[in-house]
């Protein structure tokens, strides 16, 4: 398995990644997670404006064989969702850290993002 874990992102133990830009956190699933799922065929996005707590099931990613919840890695309000990934779920497989992002949160407290794992810790977590 070739693992791709960008160093500029933070990671949750439940395999979501977070990219923080000001107080906006973009969330997707890791390369490892998409590789485990394979064949993402459906993405259910949250409603914009929804307030979520860290750990809340916020989106659903489905492969042919299973449905998996995507949890909010930090608390905040959903401010954007990726309609492109809804139309073409395979983007989660082909570009998990880019076009395959799932939703954006306006975070309640940006410092919480830094409590998540860095790339080295996440790689250790999945090895």
């Amino acid at each position: 398995m070739s693992m791709n874990t960008p160093a500029d992102l933070r990671y949750a133990t439940s395999h979501e990644w977070v990219r923080l830009d000001g107080d906006i956190a973009t969330v997707g699933i890791s390369d490892h997670a998409q590789e485990e799922l394979t064949d993402v065929v459906f993405v259910e996005l949250p409603a914009s404006g929804r307030a979520v707590d860290a750990g809340d099931p916020t989106a659903v990613v489905e492969s042919v064989k299973a449905a998996s919840d995507i949890y909010a890695p930090v608390s905040g309000e959903v401010v954007d969702v990726n309609r492109e990934v809804e139309a073409d779920p395979s983007l989660v497989n082909t570009d998990p850290y880019g076009k395959g992002w799932i939703f954006k949160l306006k975070v309640t407290d940006a410092t919480h993002v830094f409590k998540l794992m860095d790339a080295a810790a996440y790689e250790n977590h999945i090895s």
Partner: peptide, 12 residues
Amino acid sequence: MVLGNLESIVDA
């Protein structure tokens, strides 16, 4: 998300 081997077999 939760990854585990049993989720691989949900349809059987």
